[in-house]
């Protein structure tokens, strides 16, 4: 891909899983695949937010490219031959999901998002019924200082959807990531309790883009926290119309 093809979108054809499809050159493989009914698993991706390619679940194989590339950030090119569901990819995806489960304390059965959790659904979809890697069992805090919302680090998978929606859609940039490696954590402002944040507008967007029970509305009991992410594409589209 180069800049000139990005600047002037043209219609191109490519092959995904043996199926001939057409696409605009500024479209990601993920978008093209989904338009054509080919499902690629994603976790950090959310329509309406800039992709980051961090969860690695949407990795695809492209003929002639040795590296696996994230479908959310790889753009369609003429003549590309893409595989989205090879046995190798399936295996890697399952391992990655296991790594996510093992990283923190996802006690689904008592979680307020039980039954409405994208991570749980992904486990079902990918056939991950158990975890073979070691659990970390980290000691993690629950930040319950905000008036209406709660951040439970135990359930956070560091997809950074909340960080991105806060920054790019709400414009507050209250949330960010601190620390390195497995010690990374979502923080508010300069690592203050959420309730002490001066920049948080309490809009709740972060709560509803969160795929798990990490960000929830207070007062919800087990299994009650269903998320609504539909607002995001609408919001993005309406803003485009007005600008």
């Amino acid at each position: 891909m180069n800049m000139s093809t990005l600047a002037t979108p043209q219609v191109i054809t490519l092959q995904i899983d043996g199926q001939d499809v057409s696409a605009r050159a500024d479209e990601s493989i993920l978008d093209v695949a989904r338009e054509n009914g080919i499902d690629i698993p994603t976790m950090c991706h959310l329509d309406g937010l800039d992709p980051v390619g961090a969860c690695r679940l949407c990795l695809i194989e492209i003929e002639g490219t040795p590296k696996l590339l994230p479908a959310c950030m790889t753009y369609a090119e003429e003549g590309m031959r893409v595989l989205t569901d090879s046995p190798r990819l399936q295996k890697y995806r399952r391992t990655i999901l296991e790594l996510i489960f093992a990283e923190r304390n996802h006690v689904c059965s008592v979680c307020v998002s039980n039954g409405h959790c994208e991570l749980q659904n992904m486990a079902v979809k990918l056939g991950v019924s158990h975890v073979t890697v070691a659990y970390r069992y980290p000691k993690m805090e629950v930040d319950s200082s905000h008036d209406r919302f709660r951040l439970d680090h135990n359930r956070c998978i560091l997809c950074t959807r909340c960080v991105r929606v806060c920054d790019a859609v709400e414009g507050a940039h209250t949330k960010d990531v601190m620390g390195r490696g497995v010690l990374s954590a979502i923080i508010h402002d300069l690592n203050e309790p959420w309730g002490d944040s001066d920049t948080c507008t309490s809009c709740g967007k972060c709560v509803h883009v969160c795929p798990t029970g990490a960000l929830v509305e207070k007062g919800t009991a087990s299994s009650e926290m269903a998320k609504r992410t539909q607002f995001l594409p609408y919001l993005t589209r309406m803003r485009e119309h007005h600008s």
Binding site: F101, N105, H106, S109, S129, H130, V131, T132, V133, A134
Partner: peptide, 12 residues
Amino acid sequence: GSGLSEPVARGL
């Protein structure tokens, strides 16, 4: 807590 120990996960 939830989650299986490693040998049991293998056993599963």
